[in-house]
């Protein structure tokens, strides 16, 4: 019954669409092929996007708070937004917030600078002698494959529980990455470029300064953002193992004393610090890129 009813209707509709498809240009798509248009996505305005993002955040926080109050979420293990906000105020007014932040910040930045600089120089130095590079390369690869964080307890033993040991862990993590990246730059150097310099009567130092270093700079710059993250990881792990200050130490201490709200506070502060440093390094990177033009 229904089939009999719909079949002519369907056919009529198909004919109509066929006419529509064929009407503007005679030799259009073959008969029966559905007319399809490019799917177009309409972009939301910025305010709508931001509103959606904030809405999700507020929604999640409210659910958490309500859940904790009604006992649906165990506030002992998960804490709750109101308690976290309270702890945050205490942490910044009467607590060690600024000491901890400054400690973690310093060890990260110093480790980042030492690791990146020394690593880049080491990587560039492989250009000077093929023999030297061949001898040293296996060691660098070994160093790369060792999980550096596994060495952290040893580093703490050697350098003590102060700032130096955190700097050392951060340096260990960043150094190898910079070395390998700078070396990759050296290996990507066009031998014809060196040929050009030597045909102009250049000395090795001139080739290094005027060709190798500027050529490898984009490589070196490209790992800055990776390295700032690694340095922060190194500093935090160092603080986990043994430290008197730092956000990592605050997280560990709060966890051990079941002060879950303080764990959240320290993690939030740490994330903020990470974002700020990442943004700063990205800015430095873009400035440097403008400077080296590649």
């Amino acid at each position: 019954m229904t089939a009999q009813d719909t079949t002519p209707a369907l056919r009529a509709r198909a004919m109509a669409s066929l006419h529509r498809a064929q009407a503007p240009h005679q030799s259009g798509a073959p008969a029966g092929k559905p007319v399809r248009r490019l799917p177009v996505q309409k972009d939301w305005p910025i305010w709508a996007l931001v509103a959606a993002q904030i809405g999700i955040l507020l929604g999640a926080l409210s659910l958490w708070e309500i859940g904790a109050r009604t006992g649906w979420i165990d506030a002992f293990f998960w804490s709750q937004p109101s308690a976290i906000a309270e702890t945050m105020t205490v942490f910044f007014t009467t607590g060690d917030a600024w000491t901890d932040i400054s400690f973690t910040f310093r060890s990260t930045i110093i480790g980042f600078l030492i690791g990146t600089t020394a690593g880049s120089l080491l990587g560039l130095s492989f250009w000077w002698s093929r023999n030297y590079a061949a001898v040293v390369q296996p060691y660098v690869i070994c160093l790369e494959s060792i999980p550096k964080l596994a060495l952290a307890p040893l580093i703490i033993l050697v350098f003590g529980i102060g700032l130096v040991s955190k700097v050392a862990v951060a340096t260990a993590l960043t150094l190898v990455v910079s070395t390998l990246t700078a070396y990759a730059g050296v290996k990507a150097l066009d031998p014809d470029g060196e040929k050009l310099f030597y045909s102009l009567g250049a000395s090795r130092l001139q080739v290094f300064r005027k060709l190798v270093v500027p050529f490898c700079l984009p490589w070196i710059i490209s790992v800055l953002r990776v390295n700032i993250g690694l340095a922060l990881t190194g500093a935090i792990v160092g603080e986990f193992i043994a430290s008197q200050h730092g956000l990592g130490r605050a997280i560990l201490y709060a966890g051990q004393t079941y002060d879950i709200a303080l764990v959240w506070v320290a993690v939030l502060v740490l994330s903020t610090l990470a974002i700020v440093m990442y943004a700063a390094v990205s800015w430095v990177e873009s400035m440097l890129r403008k400077g080296v033009r590649q």
Partner: peptide, 30 residues
């Protein structure tokens, strides 16, 4: 080396230098 001018098939211009600073490379090295 440095007795004759040698131009390879590739232009080998240094991308981080302006045309002017590329052109003076030989003099700079000397």
């Amino acid at each position: 080396i440095g007795r004759v001018g040698y131009m390879l098939q590739k232009d080998l211009l240094l991308l981080w230098r302006t045309v002017l600073d590329n052109v003076i490379l030989g003099m700079e090295i000397q």
